[in-house]
Design a protein around this nucleic acid. Sequence first.
DNA 1: AACAATCTTGACGAAAAAATAATGATTTGC
DNA 2: GCAAATCATTATTTTTTCGTCAAGATTGTT
Lengths: 159, 159
Amino acid sequence: MKISAQEEYGLRCLVQLAALPEGGSLTLPQIAEREGISIANAGKLMWLLNKAGFVHSTRGTKGGYSLERPAEDIRLSEIIKVLDEDVLSKHCGSYTGVLDSCVHNGDCGIRPVIIGLHMLVENALSQITLAQLVGSERSVDAMFHRVHSIHRTVEPHGV
Amino acid sequence: MKISAQEEYGLRCLVQLAALPEGGSLTLPQIAEREGISIANAGKLMWLLNKAGFVHSTRGTKGGYSLERPAEDIRLSEIIKVLDEDVLSKHCGSYTGVLDSCVHNGDCGIRPVIIGLHMLVENALSQITLAQLVGSERSVDAMFHRVHSIHRTVEPHGV
DNA sequence: AACAATCTTGACGAAAAAATAATGATTTGC
DNA sequence: GCAAATCATTATTTTTTCGTCAAGATTGTT
Ligand code: FES
Ligand code: FES
């Protein structure tokens, strides 16, 4: 289970914008430099994020990208959903082996686990806003542990 | 965030073995047919699972694969860890853009989120055994919801 | 109007992942 | 001992994902 390059870099670009003072903006070359990626790559990522409505772009001299909404209002779950291209609903169609469709269609024990995991992850991410990622690693870590503690509350008996 | 083909098919092959009557075994062609994948592919997956100690293989006529340990003792977290090839520890080395290492080394707000998500997922998967995946979709779904309920118990205030 | 800075967008090439193929090794049954 | 059945291992090909390029469109400046 891993995060894709699009998710990772897209999220990072948004964090750069969120770290700016109120109303600030960055051009593609600036974003690319700050994230250590190519300008072309940053361009594609920002194009996606623009289409999805997270950022606002201005062309021409003095142009650039800025957040469309306050960073405090943007939840990570929304961002990942966009950068992830609906991987969940395509799950059964992706792993069909040499056949045309999942051999387990109709009665599959794995599907509920996949769906459950996605809900779990989405729920955790929905509790974190873009603004919260701007701080230093230490503070983000402490913040996540508050979310993380939710799984300590489960009774230890096997399910 | 998605599951890889290796994780998906590897897990499915193990479920097939777990569904067998006590002590039963399956040959590669049988596994391949039941999962709708090629024999070559099944062979590679079972080789991995054998190296990791989940299954026991017997060569020659009347050979095949069987579970090395009871399905009730094998937790999904163990399986995924093997099929996932330690994606977590390689995270920072994977997304380096055009540079040699993560631009955020030393103070990164995303890393704790990635690590936290992994812990969350691993914790959920550690509460599910292979044996529990054998039943019908409905029963597995109900079972997962008992695990899943852990995230409903979190206080809804923002973190 | 001409020019420079900037974003837009589809096509293309490179890299990584997945699947397949090929060859070898072990066991069983005769 | 030999042949058939089976797993083991590495190499090759195919597919998918990722990154780059190039031509275009828009805006601001002089
Ligand atoms: S994951 Fe699609 S039917 Fe099992
Ligand atoms: S993910 Fe590696 S430093 Fe941020």
